Computed example of a mutant assay.
Amino acid sequence: MAPYYAVVFRQSRTGTVATNWPTAQKWRDSSINSFCKKFSTQEEAVKYLENLGHAVMYFNDDPPYSNSNKNKDFNVLKNYINEIDVTFKKMFQFTDQLKNQLSYTSKLQALNISVIEHLNGIVGELETSETTNSSTSNNKRKRENDRVLVDLDVAKKNLIYNSNNEVVCYIDGVLNPVENNHVLAVSGVYFADNHPYNLHSKVPSSQTLANAKIYGALLAICQVQQLGISKINIHTDSTFLVNCVTNYFTRWRCNGWLKKNKEPVKNQEMLKLLDSKLVLMKKVSWTITDENDTDEAYKLSAAKNLAQNGISNVLKYSKPK
């Protein structure tokens, strides 16, 4: 059975499946920070991309940004220039019908020559630039692809796993008052001390503490998906979040996200986003942190500190210059 290759475009969070290694290499080298992974079946390759949270795209023989497609783009530009030239000729025909048309036609002809020459010159410079930089760009992509693969391996090795082979992480959120009686909600995700996948992020929805903790869980899942991991154990002090996921999600899906009293579920926008990520994972388990456990308290505090640092960063970069 012929192998299949999942090609991951990290920058655009998309991917595709190649049926042979030369095509996989061509697609990989078409986009910076991309890499390939080999599988026995197409289904396995597609599943891997989906577990990363990447959209799966399907192309013909040429990758979306390959040199051949760039050449096609240049041909499109040349066709546009020809269309402009044709438009000028039509304008000449119109001015020929006017009184005292000679001055108008001569001005248009001069402009026509100038515009077409400039446009052809620009396209020529672009083509020359692409040819000159092609070799350098390919070598740079290869070095960066190799670095990305090493970084992924290091990130995986430095994660903490429980007895069920689930990645363990801690999430928290903070709410901070800002100007004009507004508040700012930020989530923090902690895997291990100084781990490159620790992060903080401003909540994109309503600025509430509940949403900050929900969003923290969503971010944690996204982080492990980028590493090709599909099992995670999320530690949180939010009994609300754990109850929503473990006791109510199934019912709310069936009821159109309405409670028994027919009122809309609170925080449903963020809960729906989390739900859409949960279905892409093999397993997501939840642990309510024990505040009396020193190690648990330390790691939850680390997640909270990440969120607090996020508050500082958001306020710093949101100030008018």
Score class of each variant (00 low, 15 high):
Met1Thr: 13
Ala6Lys: 09
Phe9Arg: 07
Ser12Cys: 03
Arg13Glu: 13
Thr14Ile: 05
Val17His: 04
Ala18Glu: 11
Lys26Ile: 01
Arg28Lys: 14
Asp29Gln: 12
Ser31Tyr: 08
Phe39Gln: 12
Gln42Thr: 07
Gln42Lys: 15
Gln42Leu: 03
Val46Phe: 00
Val46Leu: 09
Val46Pro: 01
Val46Tyr: 04
Tyr48Ser: 09
Leu49Phe: 01
Leu49Thr: 08
Asn51Val: 08
Leu52His: 14
Phe59Asp: 06
Asn60Gly: 09
Asp61Trp: 08
Asp62Glu: 15
Asn71Cys: 07
Asp73Gln: 11
Asn75Glu: 11
Val76Cys: 04
Lys78Ser: 05
Glu83Tyr: 06
Asp85Thr: 13
Thr87Pro: 01
Lys89Met: 02
Phe92Thr: 10
Gln97Ala: 06
Lys99Cys: 05
Lys99Ala: 08
Leu102Phe: 02
Lys107Thr: 07
Leu108His: 03
Gln109Val: 00
Ala110Thr: 12
Ala110Asn: 13
Ile113Gln: 14
Val115Ile: 15
His118Trp: 02
Leu119Asn: 04
Ile122Gly: 00
Ile122Val: 15
Glu125Ile: 07
Glu125Pro: 01
Glu127Val: 12
Ser129Ala: 14
Thr132Cys: 03
Thr132Phe: 10
Thr132Gly: 00
Asn133Leu: 15
Ser135Lys: 14
Lys142Ala: 13
Glu144Lys: 13
Asp146Ile: 07
Asp151His: 07
Leu152Pro: 04
Leu152Val: 10
Lys157Thr: 15
Asn158Leu: 01
Leu159Tyr: 08
Leu159Thr: 13
Ile160Ser: 11
Tyr161Arg: 15
Asn164Trp: 03
Val167Trp: 05
Ile171His: 00
Leu175Ser: 07
Leu175Ile: 14
Asn176Gly: 01
Glu179Asp: 13
Val186Pro: 04
Val186Ser: 05
Val189Ala: 08
Asn194Arg: 10
Asn198Phe: 02
Leu199Gln: 12
His200Ser: 14
Lys213Arg: 15
Gly216Val: 14
Gln226Arg: 13
Leu227Ile: 12
Lys231Gln: 15
Ser238Cys: 11
Ser238Asn: 08
Thr246Asp: 03
Thr246Pro: 00
Tyr248Glu: 11
Arg251Leu: 11
Trp252Asn: 13
Arg253Val: 08
Trp257Pro: 00
Lys259Asp: 01
Lys260Gly: 14
Lys260Gln: 10
Asn261Tyr: 05
Lys262Phe: 03
Pro264Tyr: 09
Lys272Ile: 14
Lys272Met: 15
Leu280Cys: 09
Leu280Ile: 06
Val284Cys: 11
Thr289Leu: 00
Asp295Gly: 00
Leu300Phe: 02
Ala302Tyr: 01
Ala303Glu: 03
Leu306Tyr: 02
Ala307Gly: 10
Asn309Cys: 03
Asn309Gly: 09
Ile311Leu: 01
Val314Ala: 12
Lys319Arg: 15
Lys319His: 08
